[in-house]
Simulated scan of single mutants.
Amino acid sequence: MGKERFIKVYSEGTLNVTQIFVDKVTGVNYMFHCSGNAGGLTPLLNKSGQPMITPISDYE
Rank of each mutant, 00 (worst) to 15 (best):
M1W: 13
M1G: 14
M1Y: 08
M1Q: 11
G2T: 14
G2V: 12
G2Y: 10
K3Q: 10
K3H: 14
K3R: 13
E4F: 09
E4V: 03
E4G: 08
R5T: 11
I7F: 07
K8R: 10
Y10H: 01
Y10M: 02
S11D: 11
S11M: 02
G13L: 00
G13T: 03
G13K: 04
G13E: 00
T14I: 11
T14Q: 14
L15Y: 11
N16I: 07
V17N: 03
V17C: 02
V17P: 04
T18W: 06
T18R: 12
Q19T: 14
Q19H: 00
Q19K: 01
F21C: 03
F21V: 07
V22N: 01
V22L: 01
D23R: 02
D23C: 04
K24T: 08
K24S: 05
V25N: 10
T26Q: 03
T26Y: 03
T26D: 07
T26H: 04
G27C: 06
V28G: 11
V28R: 08
N29W: 09
N29M: 13
N29Q: 15
N29L: 13
N29Y: 07
M31N: 02
M31P: 00
F32N: 14
F32D: 09
H33V: 04
C34N: 14
C34E: 15
S35E: 13
N37F: 04
A38Q: 10
G40I: 04
L41C: 13
L41F: 05
T42E: 11
T42R: 14
P43I: 09
P43Q: 14
P43F: 08
P43D: 15
L44M: 12
L45P: 01
K47P: 04
K47N: 15
K47A: 13
S48W: 00
S48G: 02
G49R: 08
G49S: 07
Q50S: 12
Q50L: 06
Q50R: 06
P51I: 04
M52W: 11
I53V: 03
I53Y: 01
I53W: 01
T54D: 09
I56V: 15
S57T: 10
D58G: 09
D58L: 14
D58I: 08
Y59R: 02
Y59F: 15
Y59T: 03
